[in-house]
C-alpha cells in the first residue's frame, strides 16, 4: 500500500512537470510551426498552420527586400557583438582584479560609487548618450553601437569580482614572493583559475547585442533596413502595416537567430551556475 502511494506521488510529480513543460514550450512551439506556415499573417484561429512551407526561410535568407535584410542584420549584429564581447570582457576582468585582488586607497569608496552609478536607469542616460554620439556622427554606425554596449561595461564587475574573492590570498602571496609582478599574477595566476567565470562573461557580453532592443532602437533610427541589428529588424516586421505580410517570416527569423543563441545561452548558464556557486563550496 505504501509502495503504491509512493508510486502514485511520483506519478503526480511527473505529471505536474509534464504540464509545466507544456505551458513553457507552447509559445516556442507556436514560433516553430508558424515559421513553416503557408499563411503569411498572424493565424488567429488555428494553432497549427493549415498549409506548410519552407518558403519563409527561403525568402528570409536569400531574397532581401526593403524590409527584410536578414543576412545583413546578422552580419551587423555579429560584428558588433564580437567587438563588444572582447572589450567588455577585458574591462570587466581588469576592474574585477583591481577591486578584488589589489588594495589601494579609495578602493571601497570607488566600489560603492560604481554600485550607485549602476543604479541609474540606463534607458535615461542613453538619451544623453544619443545626443553625444549624434554630435560626433556615430549614430547608425557599428562603432557607435559598440561604444554603447561596451564603454560602460566596467561597472558590471560584481559577479566576476565575487568569484575572484574566493581565490585564496596565499596563491597570490606565494607568486609575489617568487618575484612575480602584479601583471604576471593577473595573467598567469588569477586568470586561469577564473576560467568558468570568464567563459560566462564572454558569452553573456556576446549575447547583449542579440537581445538588446531599447538602445538599438534609439541609436539606429535612420529607417534604413541595412543598418539594423537582428532585434530591430525583426521588431520592425511587426509594424501595423507590415505584420500581415511578414509575421510568418518574423517567426522564421526568430527561429533562425534562436538556434545559435540558445546553444550559447545553455553553455553560459552552466558556467554561470558553476562560477556563482563555487564560492560557497570553498567556504
Amino acid at each position: 500500500m505504501i509502495k503504491f502511494k509512493k508510486k502514485f506521488i511520483a506519478f503526480l510529480r511527473h505529471l505536474l512537470l509534464a504540464i509545466l513543460v507544456v505551458i513553457w514550450l507552447v509559445p516556442i512551439l507556436w514560433l516553430v510551426v508558424t515559421a513553416f506556415s503557408g499563411y503569411s499573417g498572424v493565424n488567429k484561429t488555428h494553432f497549427f498552420p493549415q498549409s506548410w512551407t519552407i518558403n519563409n526561410f527561403v525568402t528570409l535568407l536569400t531574397k532581401p527586400d526593403s524590409v527584410v535584410q536578414y543576412g545583413t542584420w546578422f552580419k551587423n549584429t555579429l560584428i558588433i557583438s564580437i567587438f563588444t564581447c572582447i572589450i567588455s570582457t577585458l574591462f570587466v576582468l581588469m576592474v574585477s582584479y583591481a577591486f578584488s585582488c589589489m588594495r589601494f586607497r579609495g578602493r571601497k569608496e570607488l566600489m560603492s560609487f560604481s554600485l550607485i552609478l549602476n543604479m541609474f536607469p540606463g534607458v535615461l542616460s542613453m538619451i544623453a548618450v544619443y545626443f553625444v554620439l549624434k554630435s560626433i556622427g556615430l549614430t547608425n554606425s557599428h562603432l557607435g553601437m559598440i561604444i554603447v554596449y561596451s564603454a560602460g561595461s566596467g561597472l558590471g564587475f560584481l559577479i566576476v569580482k565575487g568569484f575572484m574573492d574566493t581565490i585564496p590570498v596565499s596563491l597570490r602571496e606565494s607568486a609575489k614572493l617568487e618575484g612575480a609582478s602584479e601583471f604576471k599574477i593577473f595573467t598567469k595566476v588569477v586568470m586561469p583559475i577564473c576560467k568558468p567565470i570568464i567563459v560566462y562573461q564572454i558569452i553573456s557580453s556576446f549575447l547583449i547585442p542579440w537581445g538588446d532592443f531599447v538602445f538599438a532602437k534609439l541609436m539606429l533610427n535612420s529607417g534604413v533596413s541595412k543598418d539594423y541589428t537582428v532585434a530591430i529588424g525583426l521588431y520592425n516586421m511587426l509594424d501595423r502595416s507590415l505584420v500581415n505580410e511578414y509575421f510568418a517570416i518574423f517567426c522564421a527569423g526568430g527561429f533562425v537567430v534562436s538556434i545559435p543563441i540558445s546553444i550559447l545561452f545553455i553553455i553560459m548558464q552552466k558556467y554561470y551556475v558553476e562560477g556563482v556557486t563555487s564560492g560557497a563550496v570553498k567556504g
Partner: peptide
Amino acid sequence: TLFIVAIAVPQFVTLLLV
C-alpha cells in the same frame, strides 16, 4: 533542458510572439 529552451530564445522574440 526543456525549461531552459523556453528562455534561451531571445526575450524580444518570445515577448512579441506572446
